[in-house]
């Protein structure tokens, strides 16, 4: 329940100051541990007006891995994902309670700039949402709004290469992005998120609108991306979670005493464990297909 104070303090000195002071460069000290804690959530919850969508989430997400969030629809997994880069701020009725620390720093502290948070924690959405602009301008959008305009062409190329899209589009960067196939559009959106050099990539059911071949391409991409980034993915597809994730968190719907439906975290563990030997019977029921 309680955050471990020593660890938190260490991380704050290492990276935490950057959120409030965006001009500071990341320090190049060696990581203290192989897999540091990126997100540390304590009693995290979300309300939309009077309706509680999520409550009492306690979990840690570690660096350089893929963490999958699974669970039946309405269990709050997307809502939770949106807490991690403060996208819930954009919904007027939404209110977040509890704490969510990013490298030890409270994401919801008054001094924290939501824009800076979203710059470091990129997001890819359920449906590909390229802007009705050229491929180049799509990738360049983030760097431009954040003032990272030096070597723009290189930056765009790098992002497209990392998203494994460069070879397919390098000859038509000035063409409209809406002319790409669905799978290409989604990789374009991944490249667009990578172009602002985030530390974390949040993906909200990124393959749900795609065909199996495009899905395989995105899954491959996730495995390569995790060496440089921390990836958190919401998926309704359990096979996908089993294929790509190192850690898996299972969310479910709790009716509660009042009868109001509300999302809760049931358990989080290594993916192997969740799918073969979960602690909670509800998890087992879900992963074996007896529920949801």
């Amino acid at each position: 329940m309680e955050p471990t104070p020593a660890k938190t303090a260490e991380q704050t000195t290492r990276r935490g100051v950057q959120l409030a002071a965006p001009t500071a460069q990341p320090t190049s000290e060696a990581p203290l541990a192989e897999h540091d804690v990126v997100f540390e959530c304590r009693e995290l919850g979300v309300r939309y007006g009077r309706n509680r969508a999520l409550r009492d989430v306690n979990l840690e997400i570690r660096e350089h891995g893929v963490t999958a969030l699974i669970g039946p629809s309405g269990c709050g997994k997307s809502t939770f994902l949106r807490c991690l880069n403060r996208m819930n701020d954009l919904i007027p009725s939404a209110a977040v309670d509890g704490t969510c620390r990013y490298y030890g720093e409270d994401l919801y502290a008054p001094s924290v700039d939501a824009i800076e948070v979203r710059k470091r924690i990129g997001m890819v959405f359920q449906k590909p949402n390229p802007f009705p602009k050229s491929i180049f301008d799509n990738i360049a959008f983030g760097p431009r709004v954040l003032g990272m305009t030096s070597n723009l062409a290189d930056r765009v190329e790098q992002a497209l290469r990392r998203a494994a899209l460069w070879d397919e589009v390098k000859d038509r960067l000035r063409d409209g992005a809406l002319g790409l196939s669905g799978g290409q559009q989604q990789r374009l959106c991944i490249a667009r998120a990578l172009a602002v050099e985030p530390d974390v990539l949040l993906m909200d059911e990124p393959c749900s609108a795609l065909d199996p071949i495009s899905t395989a391409a995105i899954e491959d991409l996730m495995t390569t991306l995790k060496s440089d980034y921390t990836v958190v993915i919401v998926t309704h597809n359990m096979q996908q979670a089993a294929r790509v994730a190192d850690q898996t968190a299972f969310f479910s719907v709790d009716q509660g005493e009042t009868g109001r439906r509300c999302g809760v975290l049931i358990e989080m563990s290594s993916t192997d464990r969740i799918f073969t030997n979960p602690d909670d019977p509800r998890t087992e029921a879900y992963v074996t297909g007896r529920f949801g």
């Binding site: 819930n88 939404a94 509890g98 924290v112 700039d113 939501a114 824009i115």
Partner: peptide
């Protein structure tokens, strides 16, 4: 437990303000 609830509307207001601090021009 630090359960300071913030309505997102005030947070959205802060978005505009703090971004101003972040990106000078």
């Amino acid at each position: 437990m630090n359960a300071a609830a913030r309505t997102a509307s005030t947070a959205a207001g802060a978005t505009v303000r703090s971004s101003l601090a972040g990106h000078g021009h």
